[in-house]
Write a protein that binds this DNA or RNA. Structure first.
Length: 411
RNA sequence: GUGGGUGUAGCUCAGUUGGUAGAGCACUUGGUUGUGGCCCAAGUGGCCGGGGGUUCAAGUCCCCUCACUCACCCCA
């Protein structure tokens, strides 16, 4: 029979790799709950409209990357390409909001985007996502940033850079866009790269972000967002900066940082690494004060949050996340197989982790196996005849005698 | 959607101007040994991604296809 292979852009994670994810999830739960966040579990499937309205009809994510299909009654469903929309939907639908009440939630799970896979980019990928509702104060922005930094530090990643910007609000952003349009009208668009000639109209902020040297040169003197912030946005941003400075967070201000999803405003940030290929962002987020309302919730419920890309973080983690076993029960005579199993069970009841061989092989290969597993102790089960009486089943079970500790064996 | 790279043993890879398929590691067995490791010897294991073509002869040349991978684009 022909074998069936997995579809493009998904992964099977065996223990060596899945242990990294388990470690990150465990750490995230610890850190997030220390900041007062509770876990929200939401569906992978949502109505397509949810993402169109939140992420933005014109974004690439919505236009060409979503797994969208009709269900059996012809309703359009979409496998979530990101987490925030679903969290906001749940928040609104369950009427969690109350005036003055702050809600902190986190969620974790697979996301889906139909893209060509490459390093750090899968069609099914996993995000850890945290959101705060009901707090417009800069303290919320600062706390979210600090929590993210704490999490990344706790999983052992220190060489990451935090980039920070403010995108303005519906008040000041149009003014900035006007200034930017004026600027692009003053430059020779022919000299921009092909992509940017298109982007000037579709997504002018992205032009400022272009890696092409020519584009970077041409847009060197483009108006910057922070220079066009309204008074409230300026004050807010300054307050956030003052707070994280005081808390000792190391970051860089990147006036050209933009977000890919339409709902962001004011504080926007990204955590990047230069060690995972061309996809540098390992986490990103920001404030989205208008989103709750645009998804049918009450007016003026602010929100802020971030998402971490687990695949990208996993690339930065070292090895050795697999838990080592405490013992191995070696089997050198099949007649002792049952005794080996029972003995292992007894050890497990006393709190040790380990395994017993099912099939007897030579002493040499059994000990080789124990060595490979890096167990602390190896027990040898055989019979008197085979063992020449060195270590016998009877001795170990009835007398409780262990074979030599690993150090003794392997010195 | 657009480009580049790679598909040969379980793994990492060699394979010369086309001439019957190789190494290291791993595994199994034996030797050595302080029951491991190290070292030595032997052994198991491949429709050379798939299909078509050229040729007396294709892993090697040509065409098609599939998969993986990196990059563009986009994003976490």
């Amino acid at each position: 029979m022909a074998k069936i292979q997995k579809i493009k852009g998904v992964a099977d994670l065996f223990p060596e790799e899945s242990a990294k994810y388990a470690f990150m999830e465990r750490t995230a739960r610890e850190v997030f709950s220390a900041y007062g966040y509770g876990e929200l579990r939401i569906p992978i499937l949502e109505k397509t409209e949810l993402f169109c309205r939140s992420i933005g009809e014109e974004t690439d994510v919505v236009q060409k990357e979503m797994y969208t299909f009709p269900d059996r009654k012809g309703r359009s469903l979409t496998m979530r390409p990101e987490a925030t929309a679903g969290v906001v939907r749940a928040y609104v639908e369950n009427k969690i909001y109350q005036p003055g009440k702050v809600t902190k939630l986190y969620t974790y799970g697979p996301m889906f985007r139909y893209e060509r896979p490459q390093a750090g980019r899968m069609r099914q990928f996993h995000q850890l996502d945290a959101e705060v509702f009901g707090a417009s104060e800069p303290q919320a922005d600062a706390e979210v940033l600090l929590m993210l930094a704490t999490f990344l530090s706790k999983i052992g990643l220190e060489k990451l850079s935090f980039e920070l910007n403010s995108l303005g609000c519906p008040e000041c952003r149009p003014l900035y866009r006007k200034a930017l349009d004026d600027f692009f009208n003053s430059v020779n668009k022919e000299e921009l790269c092909e992509d940017c000639q298109r982007r000037v109209n579709s997504n002018p902020l992205r032009v400022l972000d272009c890696k092409n040297k020519k584009c970077a040169e041409l847009t060197k003197d483009a108006p910057s967002i922070p220079d066009h912030l309204c008074r409230d946005c300026r004050d807010h941003f300054d307050a956030v900066i003052a707070l994280i400075d005081e808390a000792g967070l190391v970051y860089t201000l990147n006036p050209r940082l933009v977000r890919g999803l339409d709902y962001y405003q004011r504080t926007a940030f990204e955590v990047t690494s230069g060690d995972i290929g061309s996809q540098t962002a390992v986490a990103g987020g920001g404030r989205y004060d208008g989103l709750v309302e645009s998804l049918g919730g009450p007016k003026q419920v602010p929100g802020i949050g971030f998402a971490c890309g687990m695949e990208r973080l996993a690339m930065l983690l070292g090895d050795n996340f697999e838990e080592k076993l405490d013992f191995y029960v070696a089997l050198v005579d099949q007649r002792a197989a049952g005794d080996a199993l029972i003995f292992a069970e007894k050890l497990r009841k006393s709190g040790l982790k380990g395994e017993a061989a099912f099939v007897a092989t030579s002493m040499k290969s059994q000990l080789r196996q124990a060595n490979k597993l890096e167990v602390k102790k190896c027990f040898i089960f055989g019979t008197d005849e085979v063992e020449n009486g060195t270590v016998t089943v009877k001795d170990m079970i009835e007398g409780g005698q262990e074979s030599l500790p690993r150090d003794e064996y392997f010195k």
